[in-house]
Simulated assay, not measured.
Amino acid sequence: MAVILSVSGSPSATSRTTRLLRHVDHRLVRHGHLVEALDVRTLPAEALLGADTGNPAIARAVAQFERADGVVIGTPVYKAAYSGLLKALLDLLPQYALRGKTVLPLATGGSTAHVLAVDYALRPVLNSMGAAHITQGWFVLDRHIGVREDGGTELERETEVLLTPVVDAFAAALRPHPELSAVG
């Protein structure tokens, strides 16, 4: 079992990006991994923008990165790049906060014109932070993420079919957390 941190860089409380991440989280749990969610928008704005790593909420977020074996980074695409909210978090983390970690970058947006944002905007930053392995990222159109009557997330069928092997490859690439593997 690996510990995965699932990070939403969306500023919206009703975010399709966050819906996509929680959908992916459920699949990763079915693979036997432990998933922790971090919605960056819930961190105190002043501490986040001021890079106040002494703030308890910010310190907890930094500790979540330290504990994680893998990180799923989800962001909406604004102006051909990942969100400024996500950038603020990545900027306050230690330079090599992703060292030794497997990372899955995901992005959402309203147009296929933004599909390259994962590879040209987000991947270089994740690489500079020392990620051991950045798996194939994926971009999902907002309109392909829906809400079921029960409140759950439903992906457009083709999106689900294409995203599933991406998530499964990330799950397979994870190294188990030593302390959790020894238990049970």
Rank of each mutant, 00 (worst) to 15 (best):
A88Y: 03
R99A: 15
T75K: 03
L43E: 05
G54E: 08
R67N: 05
I58D: 00
R60V: 11
V118Y: 04
R41F: 06
V115G: 08
T112E: 10
G100W: 00
T42K: 12
A45Q: 14
A81S: 15
G50D: 05
D69P: 08
H114F: 07
Y82F: 13
V62S: 09
L86V: 14
Y82A: 05
P94K: 01
L90M: 12
D119H: 07
P94H: 01
N55F: 10
N55R: 03
T42R: 14
L116C: 07
T75D: 00
V71G: 03
A80N: 13
A57Q: 15
Y82P: 10
Q64F: 10
Y82I: 01
A51P: 11
D91R: 12
S111P: 02
Y120L: 09
K87M: 05
V77W: 07
V103I: 09
K101G: 04
Q95V: 12
H114G: 04
L86H: 04
Q95G: 09
A45Y: 06
T75P: 06
R60W: 02
A81G: 15
D119L: 14
T108S: 05
D91Q: 14
G70H: 01
L106Y: 05
R60L: 10
A47I: 13
R67S: 08
A57W: 10
S83Q: 09
S111E: 06
G84R: 13
A47N: 03
D69C: 11
F65Y: 13
N55Q: 07
V115T: 15
P44C: 09
V103D: 06
K87N: 09
N55A: 12
P76H: 12
A63F: 10
Q64K: 13
A80F: 15
D69F: 10
A61N: 06
I58C: 11
V115L: 15
A97T: 02
V62F: 13
A51T: 06
L43N: 09
Q64S: 12
F65H: 04
A80G: 11
D119W: 10
R60E: 06
P56H: 05
E66F: 14
R41W: 07
R67M: 12
N55L: 13
Y96T: 14
V72D: 10
L106A: 03
A45T: 15
L116S: 14
G109H: 04
G54M: 12
G110S: 09
E66W: 12
D119M: 12
T112H: 11
V72W: 02
Q64E: 00
G100M: 03
V62T: 13
Y96P: 01
L85G: 04
D52Q: 00
D119Y: 12
A47W: 02
T108N: 04
L86M: 03
L86F: 06
Q64D: 04
A57R: 15
P44S: 13
D52A: 15
A97P: 02
P56A: 07
P44N: 08
